[in-house]
Amino acid sequence: MKMKKLVAVLAVVGMTGVMMAGCGSSSAAANTDSDAASQDQASDWDSSNDISIVSREDGSGTRGAFIELFGIEEKQGDQKVDMTTEDAQITNNTSVMLTTVAKDDYAIGYVSLGSLDDSVKALKIDGAEATEENIKDGSYKVSRPFNIATKGDPTNEVAKDFIDYILSKDGQQVISDNGYISNDDAADYAKTAPSGKCVVGGSSSVSPVMEKLIEAYKKVNPNAEIELQTSDSTTGMTSTIEGSYDIGMASRELKDSEVSEGLKATVIATDGIAVIVNNNNPADELSSEQVKEIYTGSYTTWDEVAE
Rank of each mutant, 00 (worst) to 15 (best):
108 I>E: 04
80 K>F: 08
82 D>Q: 02
67 I>A: 10
127 G>W: 00
140 Y>L: 07
79 Q>L: 10
139 S>G: 10
73 E>V: 14
136 K>V: 11
86 E>C: 06
123 L>K: 00
133 E>V: 11
95 S>K: 11
76 Q>A: 15
99 T>R: 12
73 E>N: 14
92 N>F: 15
69 L>G: 06
79 Q>T: 12
130 A>K: 01
75 K>P: 13
70 F>K: 03
123 L>V: 05
99 T>F: 14
132 E>V: 14
66 F>P: 13
103 K>S: 14
62 T>Q: 06
76 Q>H: 15
66 F>W: 00
95 S>E: 15
102 A>T: 12
128 A>Q: 10
81 V>Q: 05
82 D>P: 01
68 E>C: 10
133 E>R: 07
77 G>K: 01
105 D>N: 14
103 K>Y: 09
135 I>L: 12
109 G>Q: 08
65 A>E: 06
72 I>F: 08
121 K>C: 09
139 S>L: 04
63 R>D: 08
112 S>R: 02
124 K>M: 09
101 V>M: 03
111 V>N: 01
80 K>E: 04
72 I>D: 05
129 E>L: 09
95 S>I: 14
84 T>L: 06
67 I>Y: 13
134 N>I: 06
77 G>E: 08
138 G>I: 08
70 F>L: 04
104 D>H: 07
70 F>D: 08
109 G>V: 14
95 S>N: 14
126 D>R: 02
93 N>R: 00
70 F>R: 02
130 A>G: 05
69 L>F: 07
132 E>H: 10
116 L>M: 05
65 A>K: 06
137 D>R: 00
134 N>Y: 11
90 I>Y: 02
114 G>F: 02
66 F>D: 12
117 D>F: 08
73 E>C: 13
73 E>M: 14
89 Q>Y: 12
65 A>W: 12
96 V>C: 03
76 Q>N: 15
100 T>D: 03
122 A>F: 00
106 Y>M: 00
90 I>G: 06
66 F>G: 12
127 G>L: 00
94 T>D: 13
92 N>P: 15
62 T>P: 09
94 T>P: 07
99 T>L: 15
76 Q>F: 12
69 L>W: 06
75 K>H: 13
79 Q>G: 06
85 T>K: 06
87 D>S: 13
139 S>D: 11
96 V>T: 11
125 I>Y: 08
111 V>P: 00
105 D>C: 10
122 A>E: 03
101 V>L: 03
115 S>L: 06
74 E>N: 08
135 I>G: 06
120 V>I: 08
128 A>C: 09
82 D>E: 06
135 I>Q: 05
109 G>R: 04
95 S>P: 12
92 N>W: 15
68 E>H: 10
126 D>N: 07
100 T>S: 01
